[in-house]
Amino acid sequence: MYQIMSKKTLAPAIHEYEILAPKVAKKAKAGQFIILRVDENGERIPLTIADYNREAGTITIVFAEAGYSTKKLGKLNAGDAVQDFVGPLGVPSHVDKFGKVVMVAGGVGVAPVFPIAREMKAAGNHVVGIMGARSKNLIFWEERMKEVCHELLVTTDDGSYVRKGFVTDVLREYIEKEGKPDLVMAIGPLPMMRAVANLTKEYGIKTMVSLNSIMVDGTGMCGACRVTVGGETRFVCVDGPEFDGHLVDFEEQLMRSRKYKAEEQHALNRGGCGCGGGGKCHG
């Protein structure tokens, strides 16, 4: 069992847990993910590593209550424990000195973006953060992002905080004003990542996205997570989760992400997930 050391509710139906898993914490790198199971009947839920503390032996995860399993997870409290917790999974982000890097975060995507932005800054890049959410009450980790970004631009879909607009609006304005960055990285709901990739394609800016395909094992054993990248089938769990956004077949990914919609009828009504991508979160 893996104990929840602390719980914070960051926004409606969005929670941050610190989970005790020293071996995972020892190895975790920005861009990787874990898979957890709440209990004996639980499904395997993939979640990105939002932070890690090697001394305390903890991994931080941030998740939105999207359906049945994440709602079940959200019911736990500090002191409770999850049955299984495996990781770190996937290939770490490729961090190098690129020059100017724009990190675009949609909704809960702020959480996985944070450690990568921190690494990018440490590697000597000029880091620009763009974070968006549907509404003011869904904005979180703004302070943390400020610490790891040289510039941070915030937006809300409804204009209830800072400004009105999608992250892509902010990105376009930024590029028009400041010129092309050397790398864009986008993490958030699929439609948001697709929109960012389409935009940067116009400008010819290299763009990485972190895919959240449906998974089972996360070890390359089942192929549930397949994605077409540049015409070839890849497994997100072992070949990714980050891929060149200009090569990903987003239409196929969107269709695949809807696979179990009907089966999850028994799930409770969904809470808002706070995606700032202008699209419906989780497909």
Binding site: N41, D217, M221, C222, K259
Partner: peptide, 25 residues
Amino acid sequence: SANEFLTRSNLMKAYRFPVSDTPIK
């Protein structure tokens, strides 16, 4: 893949869905 189909059913006990949380088509 057969691995996914069988893993969902055997390991994740999807044949007992919704008692177990993992779905299968």
